[in-house]
């Protein structure tokens, strides 16, 4: 198991994080740009030194602030795949993969990895002769051929198209299963996290603000910021709440799960419709349609409530809504989660 509890401060960013990574499990580190994901990767790998805390890999100490011990990056065995791959442009594919491998086993290990990533035929090609997907595979093979103790992937699929992402995700899953490494993947891509990760940490301003199994975390955000990172788009600010009824300038809504004080109601996709699902759903909310985008079988509407709060939702069905018109929409209380600030 990989364990880290670290503190670090740099200019406007203060990192204070504790995380555990299981072998053979993929853990997603989700957060907006600037939330500290890349800095955390640099601290875990040893490219930068934390100020407090400790890092342990399989019981081996990599960093301990109390003992003033910092194992240099070269001796940590971290496999890292960078967002832009950071391939050695002056070396061919074979030499790139071989860089971290001992010379005496290079001629066994490297061809094996090239065959696993289906690039044996590109062994003597240079990075500028490879496609984006091939570069990504080489970067992954280079990180894994070094027999690392942990694999860190920094937004590894962000530069690739949708089909290629899906293909490479499957290949990555197979490689992770084979190697049984603890894997940490930094991403802000929901689909990537949902499909790859077993566990998710949500990071904001250098802190872990929520964590949980990927099966459940996406449907149970605890705070406004976590909800935004986890893909929720619509939020209603609560100004007053009593007896399970939340009120704001936008109107009121009966929410059975509203037991203690919360700052916002987060509305999941599908929570908003033009017809009430429940007779107790309330009077409905009046919105003004600001923008409308026609999709294949639905319209994507961007609307504004009375107090200026924006709601974005899909409207299915044959009716076409005109920009500038006013609608009454209903919110399904079972699709609403109260969240803190």
């Amino acid at each position: 198991m990989f364990f880290a509890k670290i503190g670090f401060q740099r200019e406007h960013l203060e990192i204070d994080v504790q995380l555990e990574l299981e072998k053979g499990c993929v853990t997603a580190l989700m957060g907006a740009s600037g939330s500290g994901k890349s800095t955390l990767f640099r601290l875990l790998s040893g490219l930068e030194q934390p100020e407090t805390g400790e890092i342990k890999s399989d019981g081996e100490c990599w960093f301990d602030a109390l003992r003033e011990y910092h194992r240099p990056v070269q001796h940590r065995k971290v496999g890292m795949v960078f967002q832009d791959y950071a391939l050695f442009e002056h070396m061919n594919v074979f030499d790139n993969v071989a860089y971290g491998v001992l010379p005496e086993i290079r001629h066994e290990v490297v061809p094996d990895w090239l065959s696993r990533i289906n690039l044996s035929h590109k062994s003597s090609s240079y990075p500028n002769e490879l496609s984006g997907g091939e570069k990504q595979r080489v970067a992954l093979a280079r990180a894994l051929a070094n027999a690392p103790d942990i694999l860190l992937l920094d937004e590894p699929f962000s530069a690739l198209d949708h089909t290629l992402r899906h293909e490479l995700r499957l290949e990555l899953q197979a490689l992770i299963y084979d190697t049984q490494l603890p894997v940490l993947i930094a991403t802000h891509d929901l689909e990537e996290a949902k499909n790859l990760a077993n566990f998710v940490y949500v990071m904001d301003e250098g802190q872990i603000i929520q964590s949980g199994q990927s099966k459940s975390i996406f449907s149970s955000p605890e705070s406004l910021q976590a909800a935004k990172v986890l893909g929720w788009r619509n939020f209603l600010p609560i100004e007053h709440q009593a007896n399970g009824i939340a009120k704001g300038k936008w109107g009121s809504l009966k929410v059975p799960s509203l037991e203690s004080y919360h700052a916002y109601l987060a509305l999941s996709q599908g929570a908003i419709s033009l017809t009430p699902l429940d007779s107790e759903a309330g009077e409905g909310l009046t919105v003004e349609v600001l923008h409308s985008v026609d999709k294949d079988d639905h319209q994507l509407l961007d609307c504004r409530l009375a107090d200026g709060v924006r709601l974005t939702f899909n409207l299915a069905g044959p009716e076409t809504v005109v920009v500038g018109s006013h609608l009454v929409v209903f919110v399904d209380p079972s699709c609403v989660i109260p969240v803190s600030l």
């Binding site: 890292m80 050695f88 002056h90």
Partner: peptide
């Protein structure tokens, strides 16, 4: 990042200079 990649792959700073910085 290519220099950092070399260090992560176990290269000393000297090796990273001669094998990455110098040729690139």
């Amino acid at each position: 990042k290519t220099i950092e990649a070399a260090l992560l792959l176990g290269a000393s700073k000297r090796r990273a200079f001669y094998s990455i910085v110098l040729p690139m």
